[in-house]
């Protein structure tokens, strides 16, 4: 991404108003980004209560930092950077003790599926949740940003303040590690 170029983001209208102190506009931003933000927070913290709390903390930080947002990256990239830093700091304070099993979220994700979803589909998603849960935090973070938040490599690098090459290498290792875990979990009849 070129520095200084204005990248169009569907949130731009609300961002401009929120920057001028419009609370309702910021509320709209929260409404439209909260599911992604919560999922990102969850993948870093692996604890639903902590993820919810830290997502809120991250939004408050974003609100306070909004006057400094210059628009030289997408707003969502900027927001995810705040979320990632907030959650990583929290995780450093708490260590792994905060992690819960992923059954809770896997079940919740099941609830999102259409009733006609096949048993295989449910099984596969459960395997994915549990395999992702076994990955190190940095792998989970890049996978979430790439596949769930659908950020580009450049945007992930900007969100995590990592070099592009490191992001690509991490994603590649994360996929490889996940592929092995999925193979292990595959039901063998």
């Amino acid at each position: 991404m070129q520095r200084g170029t204005v990248v169009q983001d569907p949130l731009d209208v609300w961002v401009a108003r929120a920057r001028d102190g419009d609370h309702d506009a910021f509320g709209e931003i929260v409404r439209h980004t909260q599911t992604q933000v919560y999922n990102l927070a969850y993948q870093i913290l692996r604890n639903p209560q902590e993820a919810e709390d830290l997502a809120q903390v991250a939004y408050v930080r974003a609100w306070r930092a909004l006057p400094n947002f210059r628009g030289d990256s997408r707003f969502s990239t900027w927001l995810y950077r705040i979320v990632t830093n907030t959650c990583l700091n929290r995780r450093r304070q708490l260590g792994r003790s905060v992690e819960l099993g992923d059954d809770h979220l896997a079940l919740a994700a099941d609830g999102q599926l259409q009733p006609e979803s096949s048993v295989i589909e449910r099984q596969t998603r459960r395997e994915l949740w549990s395999a992702v849960g076994e990955l190190p935090e940095r792998y989970r973070t890049v996978l979430t940003l790439f596949y769930q938040a659908q950020l580009s490599y450049d945007d992930i690098a900007a969100s995590l303040t990592l070099p592009l090459g490191t992001v690509k290498a991490q994603l590649s290792r994360a996929r490889r590690a996940l592929a092995r875990l999925l193979e292990r979990d595959e039901p063998h009849e």
């Binding site: 919740a108 994700a109 596949y147």
Partner: peptide
Amino acid sequence: VLRAWPLAPLPHDLVAPVM
């Protein structure tokens, strides 16, 4: 599998508590 990775639903709406 990853391309079909669904987002987990939010347990509670965050708009009111954040505001």
